[in-house]
């Protein structure tokens, strides 16, 4: 198995984290969280990849055909559902913050400190 998917996943994670750290817009920050999450898709699909394997759907192929790992695909599907829920909830919080404070810049939210 190639090391490339691991490096790519690491890179995407770091890019997402960098975006969150430097973000001046909460919508952008939540977007960066989604970017960081997509590193998990790349890693999981990379782990389950098998050279020459096809999609693990046995309706029209013989059962001896080599296929990629279906477990990680189930994990990625679950992961996508979880991620969508989180992103949707966080974005709705951002909308409310914009309505109540008139800003989406995290640096302007300074009520909680010390």
């Amino acid at each position: 198995m190639s090391i490339l998917p691991f490096l790519a996943a690491g890179w995407i994670l770091l890019a997402g984290i960098y975006g969150m750290v430097t973000s001046r817009n909460l919508v952008h920050a939540v977007g960066c969280l989604a970017v960081a999450q997509s590193s998990t898709y790349v890693l999981l699909l990379g782990v389950g990849f098998r050279r020459g394997g096809t999609a693990p759907v046995f309706s029209d192929i013989p059962t001896r055909t080599p296929v990629v790992d279906p477990v990680v695909q189930a994990l990625v599907l679950t992961d996508i559902v979880v991620g969508t829920t989180v992103t949707a909830l966080l974005l709705s919080l951002v909308i409310q913050i914009r309505k109540r404070t008139g800003t989406v810049d995290p640096e302007d939210l300074t009520e909680l400190r010390g």
Binding site: M20, L26, L33, A36, T40, V47, D79, I97, R100, L112
Partner: peptide, 28 residues
């Protein structure tokens, strides 16, 4: 209707979810 809970919840959500995705990478 209060801005402070929204701020706290957002920080809570982003930090916890990021950590959860790190865990998923570890599980992978």
């Amino acid at each position: 209707e209060d801005p402070r809970p929204l701020h706290g919840a957002l920080t809570f959500g982003v930090v916890n979810s990021l950590a959860a995705y790190c865990s998923l990478l570890g599980i992978g």
